[in-house]
Amino acid sequence: MGNTVSFGGPSVVSAVEASGEPEPDRPVPRRLLTARGLGDRLFRYQLTATGLAVLAIMAAVGLFLLLRAAQALRVRGLKFLTTAAWQPDVHNFGIAAVLTGTLLIAAVAVTISVPLAVGTALFISDVAPRRLRRTLVTMVDLMAAVPSVVYGLWGLFFLQQHVIGLSRWLSDWLGWIPLFTVDGTRPGEPLASESVYTASTFVAGIVVALMVAPIQCSVMREVFAQAPAGEREGAYALGATRWGMIRAVVLPYGKGGIIGGTMLGLGRALGETIAVYLIISPVFVIQPHILQTGSNSVSSLIALHYGDASTFGMSALMAAGLALFLLTLAVNFTASSIVARSRSGAQSEA
């Protein structure tokens, strides 16, 4: 007990008084849920059953893909990861090419979308005129809901022709970097065929970037908006400029949101099917030159071949789908663990 306190008269007296009182008088919190009625028990069982059902559905996705893929995976073993060709009917197939393509497209997309998304999110949360903010937020959220096939159409019929200049410029000036090399062209040659620049990883990446940027932006903006007003005002009171405040308060606070939003966009970019399928011309070699025509991705491989696949071919496609599934799952788990560990998430648990 605390009656050895030596602070002064009154506190000692009160402590003695407190200790003199009998112990059981301390308020004990009322215990809830001691006697559950029948209705409540049924309710709990039902809800738990729903939770189980959802879990079962989610587990079924992985399980059935694995079951169906087993046949193909048994045939190829580890070569499934290292082969670039896709000829399942002669048992020569693997995801080296499509997986590289998927990763490259996602990398291009994230490289383009993240600066845009961070900039726009900061713009909406801190720079934009107050009247505009609600409109901009609504616009970003709406854009995140625009179907991917619309982005695909735009990429195919609009961007494809207009991006050639940019591709050529990049390959002319940065062609010495292997990533930007385009076979069959020389820098500064004006008459080179334009078709070598179309249907490339780069074009698909731009389209996917525009598709995921609103999603990333909306996640980031939400976190930026939660940055504590007291700290913002403190920074201003210390004489920070607006950018100084953003760097000192908003960005450190929103780090988790930036990473989480980026990963969420990455997950979407990895799994995007239709927009990519419409734009690229599929090749089954590892294509590291992002500006050159020809690319591939796991999901567009599935969309391309599911119709004419034999039973074994279908099993091979299931194996490719399983690989994509595991990849996005890994990205998502990383994202949610980063967001959960960061300070940004702390206040969303209201």
């Binding site: 989610m58 996705v61 799994g271 949610s336």
Partner: peptide, 28 residues
């Protein structure tokens, strides 16, 4: 613990590639 587990799984599934959902129903 179980509902936390379900929540983790559901959160990881939000970015499930839509073609994988299609493949799963196709398989089943």
């Amino acid at each position: 613990r179980f509902s936390r587990f379900v929540r983790t799984i559901v959160e990881a599934m939000t970015a499930l590639p839509s073609i994988v959902a299609g493949l799963m129903v196709y398989a089943v």
